[in-house]
Design a protein around this nucleic acid. Structure first.
Lengths: 120, 120
DNA sequence: TGACAATAGATCAGATCCTGATATAACTGC
DNA sequence: GCAGTTATATCAGGATCTGATCTATTGTCA
């Protein structure tokens, strides 16, 4: 196989809880830090809220690890807020999300049959 | 509503990654610390492995928070290893698992549509 | 215009949590 | 008895998270 390949899912490093939230919030398009905070809150119906400390240090780490990259795009052309810095997933970032989904599916799948039953 | 009620899912405190793994590994029966380590590895197909540091400090915390309780049961009557300490979920613990499943379903549900597609 | 809230990014201290090593001891198979 | 596995426990160091603080821009509304 060529160098620069995307590792097989099972070999991908695991990521932190917050990092996974950030990657999912960015999604298939571009998103900026503050928008990530609002999107995480929206997706989880308010159950998870990230503070600026969590978001911006996690973005820094994800950039360093090559899971996201900064984008020049200005997705919302109506407004042009120069402060915003947009990010998108890299191929590696998307693979990590896919691997984490597989892991979580197995975990949740193991608990689902009994989790909602009352204690007998 | 009566006092001592189980809180509504959205009001339940969030738990750590390792704590959720431990609760799911214990499941609807009883399980001891070392068995939890093996069960986590089995459920996640080897993707997640907990060391003794993670497992035993997490068990301590879950006991303190009332999410699990120690059990007198000796599920495996064939052998009688006196070192083993068995634990089971409390009603609160099971509610926390159910709430976490709901949260993860939403999170994974948001990512599933695009996560396995190749970068266009 | 001026006041104010919301948006946006960044950093930091303290707390929490995790990893890997170490220790101790009981059990199992030979 | 011996070696390997099972079992619990603790610890130091590192990674991560929370909540506060700071600075500055943008949007809203009187």
């Amino acid at each position: 196989m060529k160098s620069g390949q995307i590792p097989a899912p099972d070999d991908l490093p695991s990521i932190s809880r917050t990092a996974f939230h950030v990657l999912v919030a960015i999604g298939p398009e571009e998103r900026h830090g503050y928008g990530i905070m609002r999107e995480v809150e929206r997706i989880t119906h308010g159950a998870t809220r990230l503070g600026p400390g969590g978001v911006y240090t996690t973005i820094r780490r994800l950039l360093d690890d090559g899971l996201i990259e900064e984008s020049d795009a200005r997705p919302d052309e109506q407004l042009d807020d120069q402060r915003r810095r947009y990010y998108r997933l890299t191929g590696l970032g998307r693979s990590v999300v896919a691997a984490e989904i597989t892991r979580l599916d197995r975990l949740v799948g193991a608990a689902r049959p009994w989790a909602h039953e009352s204690i007998g």
